Simulated assay, not measured.
Amino acid sequence: MGKAVAEAAVSAGLQLVPVSFSAMEVPDGKCEICDREICIHDPSESEKILPSIVKEYPDLIVVDYTVPDAVNANADLYCKLGLPFVMGTTGGDRQLLHKTVQDANIYAVISPQMGKQVVAFLAAMEIMAEQFPGAFSGYKLEVMESHQATKLDVSGTAKAVVSCFQKLGISFDLDEVKLVRDPEEQVTVVGVPEEHLAGHAFHMYHLTSPDGTVSFEFQHNVCGRSIYAEGTVDAAMFLYTKIQSGATKKLYDMIDVLREGNMR
């Protein structure tokens, strides 16, 4: 995701800060993205290195894609340093995450889903849940989501959609979500193209009426990472305008970005 976002940022004409952090080993601690040399540091060095980067790039906006276990610690650091950030990482203690950012009073866009069109689908689901609560009472819900094997937790998008269905009257626990992480099953059962096994997001939601005579299916399948990278860049640009205007509200999600119409 880091590489995909960097490429999208350069494509959008933004200045790419040539520094990143990753626990993955990179030869010589450097990588090349869009003819730009990026220095890759270990996350343990972030608190030492970031202050000097901020001095050189005062309009810096951090983009965070990491593992669930690092979510809260990373947010703590950004808040400590007063760094605005866009976080597409799922997992972690989300309630604590939002409280940390609000208490620190810094600008941030935090969303479990950065894909623009998927965000629009989520917004539609939320509107339906708010306006027609209980509309699917008694229905049975089945959820299957497939992601690359490195995706450790339940998709944040699946959690959001399930929450909407719960408001619509369906009894469903997140433990019931079927996580598909086995490549063979992803190809033969889910239908993921082999070339996208390392980066995809296939979601299927199946609803069945109590007597089995009515069914509904919702599905959104994404191959690759460009949809998330483009949305992340839009979020960063949105956040920059909020900072420049001195907006009173400081914590946003991608639905805020979508509603403002700031998407390219």
Rank of each mutant, 00 (worst) to 15 (best):
G224T: 04
H206V: 10
S209Q: 07
N221M: 10
H220L: 05
I227D: 15
E230C: 06
D211W: 03
S226N: 14
Y205L: 07
E230H: 09
F218Q: 12
G212V: 00
M204R: 12
H206W: 06
S209E: 11
S209P: 07
H203N: 15
C223A: 15
C223F: 11
F216G: 12
F218I: 06
L207W: 06
T208F: 03
L207K: 08
T232Q: 06
V214C: 09
G231R: 01
H220P: 00
Y228G: 09
H200N: 14
S215T: 13
F202K: 04
R225W: 03
M204T: 10
M204G: 13
S215A: 13
A201G: 15
T213I: 02
H200M: 01
A201W: 00
R225T: 09
A201T: 12
G212Y: 02
S226W: 11
G212N: 06
E217N: 09
R225M: 11
R225Y: 07
E230Y: 09
N221W: 09
A201Y: 02
T232V: 08
S215H: 12
D211F: 03
A229C: 05
N221I: 01
T208G: 01
G224P: 07
G224L: 05
S226H: 10
G231H: 04
R225N: 13
S215R: 08
T232H: 03
F218Y: 11
C223W: 02
V222L: 14
G212H: 01
Q219M: 09
G212E: 07
C223E: 15
Q219A: 14
E230S: 13
Y228V: 02
C223S: 15
S226E: 15
P210E: 09
M204I: 07
